[in-house]
Amino acid sequence: MMQERSISTISFNQFLNEEKLMGSKCKKCGTLYSPPRPICINCFSREMEWAELKGKGKLAAFTCIYVGPPWMIKQGYDRKHPYCSGVVELEEGVKIDARIEGVDASKPETIKIGTPLTVTYLHRGEEEKMETFLAFKPS
C-alpha cells in the first residue's frame, strides 16, 4: 500500500491519520527528506521512495504563541492559554515542524532546547473529515 501513494503533502497527511510519520528517500543517492520531497535536491533524481521515521528526536527551536491564527483560536488558544510550536530534529538527522505537547507554554522559561521528544498525533474529526496534527511530547 505504502509504495502506491504518490510522494505528496496529501499522502503525508493520510499517513499522519494512520499515525505514521513518513519521509522520502532518494533511490539514487540515499538522501532522506522530511517532510517528503518528490525530487531529490541533492542529486536531482526523481526516483524517490517512502521512508518511515521513528518519531524520536529532540527540540531544536520553539516558541510559545499567545496571539495565534484563527484556526488555533478556534481550538481554544488565546493570550491566557498559549500553545507551543517547535522544530524537532529527528534521530534520522532531518527536521520537522510540530506542535509541542506536554510542556507548560505559559512558562516558556521552563522549556529547554535539546529536550528528548517522541511523536504523538492529535486527531480532529472522524473518517473522511479526519485531520491529524503532528505533535511531539517529552519522552
Partner: peptide
C-alpha cells in the same frame, strides 16, 4: 502545510 498547520505565526517563526 507544515509550518502553518502546527500553529506557527510570523512572530512564532522568529521566536523559534
Amino acid at each position: 502545510p507544515y509550518e502553518g498547520i502546527v500553529g506557527f505565526t510570523f512572530p512564532g517563526v522568529f521566536g523559534a
